[in-house]
Design a protein around this nucleic acid. Structure first.
Lengths: 243, 243
DNA sequence: ATGCATTCGTGCGCGCGTTCACAAAGCGCG
DNA sequence: CGCGCTTTGTGAACGCGCGCACGAATGCAT
C-alpha cells in the first residue's frame, strides 16, 4: 500500500528520462521479458547503470537485490509517477503542415495523448478532416477545452501566430503547452511550456559538423597539439543494444 | 583577423542557446535595430542577462561596454561559430506523415538546411513529390549522400525502421543524425545524434500536470507539509517580451 | 578634460546532476 | 543451513553550469 505517500520531488533530468525507460520496459514486456537489471536497462537506454538505479530509486524501492526489477511492476510504477494512469487529451492549434502531421501521427493517441481537437484561425481550413478529427475554428477553443477537459495544448502555428495561440490556450484554461514554433512564448509562470525547435536542433548539429571539419583538415597546419581530444565524443557512449 | 584562432571549446548548454540568440538577432536586424544590450537580449530569449554575456563571451569579446552588441556583427559571429556560413543540405529518411511535413516545412531551407533528398524503403512512395523534392528509393542513399555532399541525415521513419535507417545513413557517410523515431539509435561514437521525441515531451508535461492535480485537491489530507514548494515553477521565468 | 551613467567581461561560490564504490540484501546451490 | 554470487540502493566526491556581484571600459554631458 505504498501508493499515495512518498511524494518527494523528482529532479527534472530524471523526469526527462522516465519516458525513455517506460518505452523500453514496454518493449520488454511485449517480448515477455519478466525482469531486467539496471545494467540491462542502462544498455538499452544508452545511459549509465548507476543513473538508472538512482532515477528509479526516486519512485521507491521497487527492485530486488540480486535479481533486478520486475518489468510489469516497474511499468506500472513509472506510469503512475508520470500521471499516465489515464489519457490526456490534447488540442492542436494550427492545421498547417505540422499540425497535419501531428494529428495524423498515430503515436500520440497510442501513448495516451489522443488528439481531441484541431483548431485553426483560417476559416478556409475549418471543416476539413485531419487524422480523423474535424478542424474547427480557433474561436471555439475555450468551449472545446472546457467541454473536453483538456489540459495540454500543442502550438503548431507559424512563428508569427504562436504567441497569440499560446495566449488563447492559456485563456481557455490549458496549463501545459508543447511549442513547435520558433519563438519564446510569454505565458504565466504557472503554465508549463516545453519547446521543440527543429531548426535549432539542426543548427546544433551544424556546430559539431563545423568543428569536426575544422579538426579534420587541420585549420592551420603546424602543431599536432590540437588534434588530440577533438574526437568530439561529448559523453554519450552507446553500446550495441542487446540485453 | 581573429577569424581562425580562438578555438576554445564551447559548453554544450551554450551551444544549445546560440540558435535562440541567433533567431532573435535576426528579427532585430529585420526591425533595423542596430544594437542590443545583454539585458535586452536576455529578456527576448527568456534567460538571465549574465548568462547571455557569458555565452557570447565564448565567441570572443564582441560587445562594447556602455553600449551593448552591434546586431549585424553579432549575427555574423554567431553564424560563423555555428558553422552557418554555408548551407548544410540534409537528407530525410522516411516519406511518411512526418517526413512529409518536414519536407514541406519551409523553415528548413530558409534557415540554411535545404532538403536535398527524401528517401523511403517503400517502392510505392518512390516517385511522388514532397515539398518540391522527388522521393527516391533508400538503396540510392549512398549515391545521393556522396554526390550531394550531405553530412546531416534526418530519421523520420517508424520506430521499427529507425535503426536500419541510421545504419544506412552512417554507411553512406553521414556524420550527424536528427532522430524523430522513439528509439535509442546505436551508432559509432563519431556520429553525433540528437533526438526529438514528441511522445516523451508530452509525458513530461503529463508529469507536471499530474503533480499539479495532486497539489490542487490535496492528495490525502492530513499534513499541509507537502503543499509548500509545489508551485512547480522550475526555473524559467519569462518576462514580457519588449526590449 | 573630467565626471557620471551605462554595460560588458568574468572571478567566485553554490547547487544540481553524474558517477564511483561499497555495504546491505536477496537467491540458489550444495 | 550456510556460503558465495548477483544486483540493488545510496553516501560521497566530482564537475559543470548558473547567477551574483564587481571591476574595467566606453560614451556622453557639461
Amino acid at each position: 500500500m505504498p501508493s499515495e505517500r512518498t511524494r518527494r520531488r523528482i529532479p527534472e533530468a530524471t523526469v526527462a528520462r522516465l519516458p525513455v525507460y517506460l518505452r523500453i520496459l514496454g518493449e520488454l514486456a511485449d517480448d515477455e521479458v519478466e525482469s531486467i537489471s539496471s545494467d540491462g536497462l542502462a544498455d538499452l537506454a544508452g545511459v549509465n547503470a548507476a543513473k538508472v538505479r538512482k532515477d528509479l530509486s526516486f519512485l521507491g524501492s521497487y527492485g530486488t537485490r540480486g535479481v533486478g526489477y520486475v518489468v510489469a511492476y516497474l511499468v506500472y510504477q513509472v506510469r503512475r509517477e508520470l500521471g499516465l494512469t489515464h489519457d490526456w487529451p490534447v488540442v492542436i492549434v494550427g492545421a498547417g503542415n505540422l499540425g497535419h502531421a501531428l494529428a495524423g501521427h498515430g503515436g500520440f493517441s497510442q501513448r495516451g495523448f489522443p488528439v481531441a481537437a484541431v483548431v485553426d484561425v483560417d476559416p478556409e481550413k475549418v471543416g476539413s478532416v485531419l487524422g480523423g478529427v474535424l478542424v474547427r475554428h480557433i474561436d471555439e477553443l475555450s468551449e472545446i477545452v472546457q467541454s473536453k477537459q483538456i489540459n495540454i495544448g500543442v502550438v503548431a502555428t507559424s512563428a508569427s501566430g504562436a504567441q497569440d495561440a499560446a495566449e488563447r490556450l492559456v485563456r481557455a484554461g490549458v496549463t501545459s503547452i508543447l511549442n513547435f514554433a520558433p519563438v519564446v512564448l510569454s505565458v504565466p509562470r504557472s503554465v508549463e511550456v516545453r519547446k521543440v525547435d527543429l531548426a535549432a536542433e539542426l543548427q546544433i548539429l551544424s556546430y559539431y559538423e563545423h568543428r569536426r571539419s575544422l579538426a579534420a583538415h587541420g585549420q592551420g597546419s603546424s602543431h599536432s597539439a590540437t588534434v588530440v581530444g577533438l574526437a568530439t565524443d561529448n559523453g554519450v557512449a552507446r553500446r550495441s543494444a542487446n540485453a
